[in-house]
Amino acid sequence: MSAKNDENAFWTIFGYMLSGLLIWGGIGYGLDWWLDTDFFLLGGLLLGMGSALYLIWLRFGRE
């Protein structure tokens, strides 16, 4: 059971980070495309990764 939990946690972490990058990075990409700038993408990626790591800490690091 615990090995399966590890497997689940592994893919959950991967999924969180992927969706963090996709969502906030996508928003940043859209803002860049709309406003003709080039820093929103980087900011969005960093924000997405940061919030994904925060979420992972909430889910797995707290207890």
Binding site: A9, F10, I13, M17, A52, L53, I56, W57, F60, G61, R62, E63
Partner: peptide, 8 residues
């Protein structure tokens, strides 16, 4: 938790 945070 340590292992998973490090992995992340």
């Amino acid at each position: 938790p340590i292992a998973f945070l490090g992995f992340a």
